[in-house]
Amino acid sequence: MPLIDLGAAIALGLRYFTILYLTALGGLFSERSGIVNIGLEGLMIVGTIMGAWGTIEYGPVAGLLIGALSGLVFSMVHALATVTFHVDHIVSGVVINLVAVGLARFLSALFFGQATQSDPGIPHLNSIDIPLLDKLPLGLGAAFSNMSPVVPIAFLMAIPTIYVLNRTRFGLRLRSAGENPEAAETLGVRVAPLRYAGVGISGAFAGFAGAFLAIEINQLFREGQTQGLGFIALAALILGNWAPIKVMIGSLLFGIAQAIPLRLSDAPVISLLPEEFIRMIPYVVTIIAIAGFVGRVNPPAAAGRAYEGSAA
């Protein structure tokens, strides 16, 4: 019995991984460019509402893209505030999160006639089976069958991310804006547009992840469905030391931790805990991970710092 549950638990963990990893990769671009983005949660929320609307109107592919695009547009508020007007990054991020909740309710009332959710069963993508892995014994195959195609795409996103960051001129300049904006500017790199780009990419990723949550997992928009996943993605980013592959490992850890309360509540030891304590597991895991590994983290040197360049 527990082994069969394990397959389902991994399947759910992989879905949470997808949300966390996509959002964290977005955050990686933003922070590598020097802008701390705790507004990821709010950007995800915008992705859920716009993605849900998009899939109802134009189908799931368009829904995911509309989610990404609206995340991008909304993130420009954060970019404008932090890059151009030097508003404290945390303050702006908190405001993004506050406004996103209000905006989502407003739009939900507009789109669905009720402030807190859409009708359930909105259109989603056809699910796929991963060849070979879906035949794994002991019920583990269930983890890799009937999967949203976005899940493997999330894993594969590591490749373009690494390529862009390390092998392109844009990536090099983006990182220099986050590490040493003064030196970058001296070398003729314009910091502000790069930081706008970094924040915009984070908005697109987080919006996409939110749309994935609404369309592919819950198949509806519901207020509060992001449940703080944007913040856990931020923790995965820190735990992964702002490096794409390590962030993937961190996101897997937190993804599985998220799945425990929902799918492993019957497992030995865990079943002895009251439900509310099981729900604390992801948060406790995050705190322990952040406190335990943080000695080894190495954030972008200029992240969180306003850059008052010559153009400012």
Binding site: F231, I238, Y283, V284, I287, A291, V294, G295
Partner: peptide
């Protein structure tokens, strides 16, 4: 003691 950033840990403490 460990350098864990308070923004992340306090958010987790909220959930708990």
């Amino acid at each position: 003691k460990t350098g864990a950033h308070e923004v992340v840990t306090t958010i987790m403490m909220n959930g708990i």
